[in-house]
Design a protein around this nucleic acid. Structure first.
Lengths: 106, 106
DNA sequence: ACATTATTTAGCCATTTCGCTAAATAATCG
DNA sequence: CGATTATTTAGCGAAATGGCTAAATAATGT
């Protein structure tokens, strides 16, 4: 079963990508900007330099949270919320069993 | 409005806590163990040493994902899923606006 | 008081992360 | 082709993270 391992890696990538405030910020800005922005527009809106932003973008793309399309010499980034599901699904483990169960052996 | 800043910090703590596989593992094990386990039981189940596990526990407690209760000389840890909501609420920003909107100015 | 048990704190080291500046690539314009 | 624009890659240094061992604390049992 290769799938399970893959899912774990996906979850790990997504949570790590979301763990940095700058990256969460980028996702929100791109989303509310209409879901598509160029790297330059994104970089212009943040305190950090272009190369730093560029690295954040790469991490987000690697996690599948951003999709990138290159048209001419500019890159357009678009939010893809599908990967949020790996987190939501992980949360569901905690719906299934009430925390009030008890250890059986004293 | 002090609240907003507090919420952001909470989200940050939760996402950072969830970003490490060992900590996710701890939450799952404690949860399925019935929601309460001693530090020793937790440490015994992981590849890393007690002090390392202890640090992970501290991070989870700081994020509000575990609650700890000291009875005698042992500490009991219990999962508190309430803080998952800060993540779920953050995700909701992405429900509100479809990504298909367009930038208004050409 | 002393030994034992449960767990944390302190301190060290290796690795990763994240910021920066400078240089490289890649597409387009003149 | 050479200049310009858009963006990344390379490489450095500081800080954070995560692992370890050894020592400290804190409660309990004898």
């Amino acid at each position: 079963m290769v799938e399970a391992k893959q899912k774990l890696e996906e979850l790990d990538a997504v949570l790590n990508a979301l763990a940095h405030p700058a990256r969460r910020h980028i996702l929100l800005v791109v989303w509310f900007r209409g879901g598509e922005m160029t790297a330059g527009e994104i970089a212009g809106r943040f305190g950090c330099t272009w190369p730093t932003t560029s690295r954040h973008l790469k991490i987000l793309v690697a996690a599948g949270l951003l999709k990138v399309e290159k048209r001419g010499r500019t890159r357009f980034y678009k939010v893809d919320i599908a990967k949020f599901n790996s987190v939501k699904e992980w949360f569901q483990w905690f719906d299934k069993k009430p925390s009030s169960a008890r250890t059986s052996k004293k």
